[in-house]
Design a protein around this nucleic acid. Sequence first.
DNA 1: GCACTGACGCGGG
DNA 2: TCCCGCGCCAGTG
Length: 121
Amino acid sequence: MDFYKRLELTGQRIPYGKVATYGQLALLCGKPKNSRQVGYALRRNLAGEQIPAHRIVNASGILSGAGAFETPDMQRMLLKEEGIEVRKTDSGWKVDLKKDGWKNTLSDAVELRGMFDAMGI
DNA sequence: GCACTGACGCGGG
DNA sequence: TCCCGCGCCAGTG
């Protein structure tokens, strides 16, 4: 089981204009408790270059990874370009998970599992 | 093997 | 809602 390979495939399934959480991706990768590794992988670019890292936020909707981009407000700008509302709060820049969060379905999970098995990862 | 770290999550107060 | 403590586990030295 190659967690980072799985993360790469999973990340690419996040729809344009939507955001996903670390825990959500970890769950879809088959490792519910590896949310921290999701952040580690993105920071170190272990999940590929094309993965939409700007669409990944923590469980509160906070843009925790701003520091890993070229400029601190890059992530916020990219989300804005996709039509996602980003608000300034005391704890940082935040998105509305209820409105813009990716509501992945059971079939998404099943489909991913199928891909993992087929690729032996 | 050991201790520490970290783009995190969750329950309790 | 916010803050705190604890749990979690791959990487790193």
